[in-house]
């Protein structure tokens, strides 16, 4: 079995299993914790609308905070959108998904994907430098923050190397790229990458709690 066979076979199956099972386990684990009913008289009915509002509202800072936070938000968006475009709109990735789901969708030109990847890596580096130099972020960061950075950045770097065909041996390079993605998937349920789910749960929770009360969060 070559490294590529391993990456495409058992490694992939294992990674996807941990990824799916881990996410479900962690989400259900939190959901299963004690729910307390709020018995106070709601100021307004349909708190769920507030939950939906909260989801959207927190996507961008309120006006008084924009000066201080704009750069961080922009960097954050670049990273997240970069991930989205590269994962889902790069031709070889679409072919991979097509294999699994049985259908595909239009791709972005390779040149655009390369540019997006480079910009995203740039944004990831800026985010890391900020984490290391800003005293607040430095204090509150832990292993998870740095490891998450590592497993997120690695597939971009190995992917660029694969697309640019700079490996000494293409197939081994591709295998390394795949393995770096599986590492991301395996780590996903254990660390803060789970914020891909928590952001919705948490924003919805606060939004609906405060819709009940009025006020703002």
């Amino acid at each position: 079995m070559t490294l590529l066979d391993f990456a495409r076979g058992p490694a992939m199956q294992f990674a996807i299993f941990i990824f799916v099972f881990g996410i479900v386990f962690r989400l259900v684990g939190v959901w299963a914790m004690r729910h307390k009913r709020d018995l106070s008289e709601p100021r307004q009915p349909s708190a769920w609308k507030g939950g939906i509002h909260g989801l959207i509202q927190h996507a961008w800072p309120y006006k008084p905070f924009r000066d201080k936070l704009m750069t961080d938000y922009v960097i954050g968006y670049v990273i997240h959108l970069g991930l989205l475009f590269v994962i889902f709109f790069y031709k070889p990735h679409i072919l991979f998904f097509q294999d699994i789901f049985g259908f595909g969708w239009p791709a972005l030109p390779n040149g655009v994907i390369t540019a997006i990847s480079i910009i995203t890596i740039g944004a990831l580096v800026i985010a890391l430098v900020k984490r290391l130099t800003d005293p607040v972020r430095r204090l509150i960061s832990n292993f998870d923050d740095y490891f998450t950075w590592f497993v997120t950045t690695l597939p971009f770097v190995t992917g660029l190397a694969t697309a640019g065909n700079v490996w000494w041996h293409y197939e081994t390079g591709l295998a390394i790229h795949l393995l770096s993605v599986w590492l991301l998937l395996i780590y996903f349920p254990f660390g803060k990458l789970m914020h891909a789910f928590w952001f919705g749960v948490s924003r919805y929770t606060t939004g609906s709690r405060f819709a009940r009360r009025g006020g703002m969060a």
Partner: peptide, 12 residues
């Protein structure tokens, strides 16, 4: 629980 799971240590 979901609040404590959700923090991304952004410092905002």
């Amino acid at each position: 629980a979901n609040y404590m799971e959700a923090c991304v240590h952004c410092g905002a």
